[in-house]
Nucleic acid binder design. Sequence first.
DNA 1: GAGTTTGAAACT
DNA 2: CAGTTTCAAACTC
Length: 796
Amino acid sequence: METPQRGKTGGASLSKFEDSPVFNFINNLSPIRPVKSTDSAHIAHTYQSLNFASLSSIFSSPHANPPRVTRNLTGPPSTDLSRREEFLENVGESSLCSEVSDVVRPSRFTATTQDNCNITCSFNEAAIDPPEHCPILPSTLPQSSQYDSGSPDHNTKMKFALDLGHAPAELVPFVQNDIDRRKILFTMETGVQENHPLELNKDEVEGVQENLIFDDAEDMLIFDSFMEPVVHERGGEEVIGNDVTSFVSLLSNYTENVDKLQKTQPDIPHRPCVQDITQDLQLKCSEDSRKKKPETEHGKKMLSVTHQNQVDDSKQHGIHRRCLVFEVAGISQRNIYGDSSRNQSTTLPSKSRNIFDANLKPAISSSLCAFPGIGLHLNALATTSMDRMVKNEKLAPGKQLITMPCPIDPFASATTGRNSPQKSLAIEADLLTSGEIEDLQVTYDAAAKDISLGNYEELSQGSPKKKRCKSENGGESEGCKRCNCKKSKCLKLYCECFAAGVYCSEPCSCQGCFNKPIHEETVLATRKQIESRNPLAFAPKVIRTSEAGVEMRDDANKTPASTRHKRGCNCKKSNCLKKYCECYQFGVGCSISCRCEGCKNAFGRKEGVGEIEHVEEETDAYDKEKEGLDDGPQIAKVQIDERNSFGNILPITPHQSCRRSIKLPSSSSAKPPRVSKLSIGRSPGLYGSHILWKSEILLSQDKSENKINANFEDDTPSILKSNASPTTGIKIASPNRKRVSPPHIGVGLSPPNRRSCRKLILKSIPPFPSLDNDDASTEHPLSYSRNSSFSSSTVN
DNA sequence: GAGTTTGAAACT
DNA sequence: CAGTTTCAAACTC
């Protein structure tokens, strides 16, 4: 090996870099393994052309204005296996790029792949700026000004590029691996994507980016997700760095806001600094990793076995990253962006997946309970995705395909007998242990059982029709969704089937029904018309808003204020204690957007209602009134990331799903809606979903997450807090002037800036598929003709 | 199962 | 926007 070359900026040494505050900062931020000088040296050694000197010079010379330096790193040709293996040995677990990630993480990291598939890491000093008073940060940490290169944007950028054209193919996965492991909140996309039709194009990314303006640590976390490396078909194309840029914005905003916050609210305990966040993540990650240890080890074993495969894969693919939102979201994100993403995880080298897997599991779990779908369309999409998943037999090393019958298939259930063959749930999972698979199966069976028992709604947070469902079909989920329309021809939202985006089926007692496949055109046209009137007409009625933990902390029996009816109810006589009330029906509390009178919603009352009573009283009242009522609304509130809704069918562990459920007052004693195992968003199960976003799912989870969540609220401006209710905060006018809230949730959940996050969702993924033209071909056909064009048009 | 009540959806 | 009508689910008997 040749000795590392010094960069043009060269003067600084690695040791100098070690002494730099930035180095310390980085180490502080690196929960898993601090950057070590030896690492750097080793890296430099290993990769002769990777010049860290320039990096260190920048870090160690805060006042210097190093010119932008780009280094092309020429490693062993990817075709040279021996060299690659040697490289692997040298680099070892902590690969070169892991170091790279370590080094750059605290700063702005942009990974762009140029035509020659370089990874360009750009440092932006602004991102390095630590929040003031952040205990972990060295007091001497250079501020941005110190790094001001004089450029208009004050960016001092150093690029070191890894010429993947010559670099070991493993490099990329390793980069990904380490980044994943460290939960670094940036995205990186490397390369290349041949035959990735659904890959985000630049415009999409930009669109996403535009709306991705996080400015809080939480945002970062959300943004985090787990980076999913994706192996693409070809190595060496353009890497979209926009995601990374998004992260940059995020990080920058975060630091800035922390500073602001600290200045404006010195009394308030400082929000978690980056380290706190990363530690939380790391903690979670570590826990997961420990749990997954056997798998991890197995994965390591697999590594050797599958190394060649990986190499091949690596040759075929690039790294594709999409990281938004928490882990689950990360997965779902893939679905948003296309089918290709699904394989992202698939193609991950097993070794690289160890950490990733730890994250994947929960994601899988949540998916199980959140059988996707924003509306039926998405459910169908999910199914289709599954199909495609099955079709796509290429499973990554260390992956296994678990297939189970899919009970939660709106089509299977509502349209069985027509064109809805029972779908199988194909779960691509990391080599799970038999026990884990068993657990998965148990969970899945439980869900299936619920559905088969007619508790469809119980699983779907929809209007309970248990009466009509149970005892029928001997366990088939079909028939649970039925209407009794007489005049609407099942072409109005009065019809639950129609509203849910499903065809009426035999069990329906409707008259003059047009909501049938044979009238597909009519159905679609009508639907389109309705949507034109109100784009969100078919949107989930219950959305996730803010105030999440607040109410939960206040009273576990209450529905988290974060989950509220989109428009709010308008009850006059029912006191929001009957299913007439949609809020109650969905098992959510009323909010200030409700116009109900005499609200006694047991799940929580709207703010401002004078009759604040104790929940116990409410419950008692309800009990009295409801005594004898066989079942209340069976609602579960697994909140689904809208991205999950996009067909991200991933297995989930039972308790994970339960854990993510929001406990509702038990209905066992004729009390309000009880908690069910699963819930798929909106109504009758078909909507699957309210777009219950991932971040919400995580809300009630880990301590670290709770901690973060708490901070969310802390930072929520009072103005937003006051608007915390679902609709008030983000109320928009629908065409028919009715109050309509965007499907996104988390008004208050998110600090102001999180609006961007929602924007992102809305923009990048039309939550509620429109019948319009282009989309119609992929969405509505899905809804109403599962066998129609979608699969054929998107599968491959 | 028929009739009533209720509130969302649709309409004016 | 508000008021009214229509509608079908929820509920009662």
